[in-house]
Design a binder for these strands. Structure first.
Lengths: 135, 135, 135, 135
DNA sequence: GTGGTCTAGACCACG
DNA sequence: GTGGTCTAGACCACA
């Protein structure tokens, strides 16, 4: 897997999913985990596109979505910045998490699996290496 | 939401996802949960297409994938049947569940959420009606 | 796998191939291997259809092909008989074998495999026990 | 027989088998034999369809199967590429070869032919022009 | 009647 | 430009 560092952001892109989605997810993740700080400057669309060898339109689409989610903001003539509002980040993080969780539970329900089945699987396969939390 | 019953199968189709995927998911679910029994006859491609008001090719695509997954089998000139092998169903169910769970844990990790965070959310929002798992 | 005995013929039918082809192949095999003797009476179309729970048309199609190949002959009012001519059987056996072999060699060639590769595979996997393949 | 060259691929199509299967087989063969290199770009679905004078859906079906077999991969908006993994090709080649060989041996067994009979036939008819392997 | 293949042509998402 | 989904309708093999 090829990993690319651009400023404080790290990207790992493949061709199995839409490119703009991968940028979106990975920037979101960096913001949620504090890998890029509140108020930090994002790479410009053109710079990122060049580094990732993508069409600028593809990067722009991800940036637009980030802004719509309240995670970034454009400052005229200066570029794009991570929002300074910790509250915005928290709010977004919570709503996305809930969305993921609800979708996941629906999937499990569709397979007829109970919460106990899930816990058991996770205990067996991912039990030890839990972490990555920060609250 | 419009729900349609075809034999022992219930379908609920919208236009937010590919139609063949929705058929696929819902038939999988019915098999996994035993709503349609092992060895039972499936609706014919044409019949289901007519009931769901879609093109037979769309239904056929879902049926082909079901067969590739080992959940159904075609009998020449007779139609499509749910596999008689409980083992096939179990194997498929397990592998799909693991895939879903792994993807979910990756999502949670990308948001910097710990397993405790997840459990807490679920306890609060889905805690009471767990076990039988149905909405 | 379900095996059915009809007179001196043994059938093992599944739904993954055309039914008439399976009858054809298995009767051919029985004749080629002498499991049913030259000049022996074949089961009638109706009888075989009933035993195998098939449509008589399906059995008839196989019988027609057998007759066209010179392996059986109809005697008016008496039914269908395996040919009495050992020469006919030998001729057919040879021509079918050549056809199979040529097709097989074409497949191997299409994968870029040499005869040595094939021999090696067969030595490793089927070398010791001819006929009753069972690992 | 009409042969058509498209990029580094050569096609020879008739109407005796499904068109998508012939594309599938011939592309597989080209990959297995290295006639098209790892990582090379395949003709686009539309281009190949036009060259072979068939419907794009027919070509797409073959391409989907190639991808399912791990021999090719799609890159969003860029086209279809032969996999870069020599291992994937080798794995596929081996498993297909074994499948062909096992089926062939079953055919020979059904005709009551021994391995010696086969070798003799091949020595007589194909003995001189063997080769073309590479590993 | 069943499913399987193919065509023609439309519309969409992605880059 | 790429592939992905869907429709409508034809023709075929099999039972």
């Amino acid at each position: 897997m090829e990993v690319q560092q651009v400023g404080s952001l790290r990207f790992q892109i493949d061709f199995s999913q839409p490119l703009y989605e991968q940028i979106l997810d990975q920037v979101r993740s960096a913001i949620a985990k504090g890998e890029i700080g509140l108020g930090d400057k994002m790479p410009s669309v053109r710079e990122l596109a060049q580094e990732l060898r993508m069409n600028p339109n593809t990067v722009m689409r991800a940036y637009q979505e980030l802004e719509r989610d309240g995670l970034t903001e454009k400052r005229r003539g200066q570029g794009t910045y991570v929002t300074s509002s910790a509250e915005s980040v928290q709010h977004f993080r919570k709503s996305l998490a809930e969305q993921y969780i609800d979708a996941f539970l629906a999937q499990m329900e569709s397979l007829g699996l109970s919460w106990n089945d899930i816990e058991e699987y996770i205990r067996n396969n991912h039990g030890t290496e839990k972490g990555g939390s920060q609250e």
